[in-house]
Amino acid sequence: MTTPVLEARAVTMRFGGLTAVRSVDFTVNTGEIVGLIGPNGAGKTTFFNCLTGLYVPTEGTVSYKGTVLPPKPHLVTKAGIARTFQNIRLFANMTVLENVLVGRHTRTKEGLWSALLRGPGFKKAEKASEERAMELLEFIGLAHKRDHLARNLPYGEQRKLEIARALASEPGLLLLDEPTAGMNPQETRATEELVFAIRDKGIAVLLIEHDMRFVFNLSDRVACLVQGEKLVEGTSEVVQSDERVIAAYLGTPFEGAPGEEEAAEVAAAEAHAEAAPSTKGDTQ
C-alpha cells in the first residue's frame, strides 16, 4: 500500500446535543480518488469542515502525511490540503486571475514591507505567481477570461475556477464538495476528466457527490456516511451492492431496470447533444 495522505482518526463532531459526525476513521492514499456519499444531513460537509480546520473536531485527530493538523483553516491549507465549497465561494468581485493569485497565498511570502519597497525580489515573486496562475488557468481552460470578474462567469466555469484556485495552493490533497452540483451532463463529464487530470498530477482527491454515476465512475474507493457514521467503505462495486447503503441512501436497487433506463436515457441525450460526427465514445 502507498502511504496515506490524509488520515482521520475517530473524528467526532458534536453541536450541543447533536452528534453530526460520530467517530469516523478515514484514510486517503497518494494518487487515490475517494468518494464520500450519503444522504442529506449525513454529516459529509461537517466532516469536510473538520478535515479542513473550519470546525474543531470534538474528538479525534486529522493528520496529513503523518503530521497531525492544527484545527486552523489557513494552516491546513499551508500543510497541503485545499478545498472547494458546496455553494461556490469565489471572491466574486475579483478577477479570474486575482482569484487564482489569492490561492497562491501560502506558497508566497512577500509581506507588507516587500510590497512597499518593491525590490527585485517582489517583482520576481509576483511574476512567478502570475505565471503559475496562468498555467493553472490554461489547465482548466479559462486563460482567455483572466480579466473577467469571477461573478460574471457562467456557473460551470465558476466551479472550475474554484478548483483552479484550490490547486494554486499546490496541495497534496484536494477536497471537492459536490463539484458537479447544478451541472448538465456535458459539464459533469468535463469535470470527471478534470478530476482525473488532477489525479494524474499526483494530487489525491476526496470528493463529496450526489451524482452516483460520477462518483462510482471516478472513485477508487467510496465511503458512505449515514447519520454521522461511516456505514461502509470499499470499491464502487462493494458499496453499490451493500444492502445497508441501498436501504439508507441509494434506495431502489442500483442495477434494477429504472436505474439503467435512466442511465441509457442520459447517455442518449449526451450523444445527441455532442452532435453527429463524434460517435466513438457513447457505446457504453
Binding site: P73, T77, V102, H105
Partner: peptide, 11 residues
C-alpha cells in the same frame, strides 16, 4: 469578499 473562503485559501 469572503472571509471563510479566504482562510480556506491559506490566508
Amino acid at each position: 469578499e469572503d472571509e471563510t473562503a479566504a482562510t480556506a485559501m491559506g490566508i
